[in-house]
Amino acid sequence: MKVIAVDIDNVLNNFSDTLAQSTFIFKDSYGISQEKFSHYLKLVKRDDFAESKFLTNKFSDFRHRIHEECYPLAQANADGVKFMNWLKANDWKVVICTKRNLRLAGECTKKWLYENQIPYDYLVMALNKIVFCKLWDVPYLIDDDLLNITYGEHYGIQVFYPIMTKHSSIVYQTAKGFTQFEEIKQWIQE
């Protein structure tokens, strides 16, 4: 069986660009001060984290809420949509594998995938996609995360990634970078 896992944000869409370009207005419903709002927003836009000894805190709640505002605004990558439809037409099982908290953002994620005509068989949340792929025998992963790009093949997962500026810091990796999804076809043909 042919199985592949594909990330959403910054792979099938332009999430980081959307986040960077979006304007967010302070609201009392955020439950933080105007000063804290400005500080947290800068951190979120830089994809940075506020220091905390807790996994869930005011910042993590704020970060999720800002991301949730951006999810429906992110534009689908037309090349990625075409590739996803090619996968389904060629009998691939497609796992959308995301770090999004699907308990909180599952419905808007499904809606976005549907509206952008992106087919899939499974939608899963995985903080460590290499472990997920290894445990579920998914040999291929398309993802932009530096950790997966660097260590995927070490665990038997072939990783493909859209080449982005943030990838210039990678010293050693065996993953394959691409500029067009079409390039991936040659690497996954049996």
Rank of each mutant, 00 (worst) to 15 (best):
M1R: 06
M1D: 09
V3G: 11
D7T: 03
D7P: 02
I8S: 00
N10R: 00
N13F: 08
L19I: 03
L19N: 01
Q21L: 14
S22K: 12
T23A: 09
T23Q: 13
F24D: 10
K27P: 02
K27Y: 04
Y30C: 02
Y30G: 07
Q34D: 11
F37L: 06
L41K: 05
K42E: 15
K42L: 15
V44S: 04
A50V: 12
A50D: 14
F54P: 00
F54G: 03
T56L: 10
F59M: 01
R63H: 08
R65I: 00
R65E: 13
H67M: 10
C70E: 09
C70T: 08
C70S: 09
C70F: 02
Q75E: 12
N77V: 14
D79W: 09
G80R: 02
V81A: 06
K82W: 07
K82E: 15
N85Y: 07
W86P: 09
W86T: 02
L87S: 04
K88M: 13
A89R: 10
A89Q: 14
N90V: 09
D91R: 14
K93R: 14
R100T: 02
L102T: 13
L102S: 07
L104I: 08
G106K: 03
E107Q: 12
E107M: 06
T109I: 11
T109D: 03
K110C: 14
W112S: 11
Y114D: 13
E115V: 04
N116Q: 08
I118V: 15
I118C: 14
I118Y: 07
P119Q: 12
P119H: 08
Y120C: 02
Y122G: 05
V124P: 00
A126I: 07
A126D: 03
A126M: 05
L127T: 15
C133Q: 13
D143Q: 01
D145V: 10
L147D: 09
N148Y: 03
I149D: 02
T150R: 15
E153P: 06
H154K: 15
G156D: 03
G156M: 04
I157W: 03
Q158W: 00
I163H: 01
I163L: 12
M164D: 13
T165V: 11
K166M: 11
S168W: 07
I170A: 04
K176F: 10
Q180E: 04
E183M: 12
E183R: 06
K185N: 00
W187E: 12
E190Y: 06
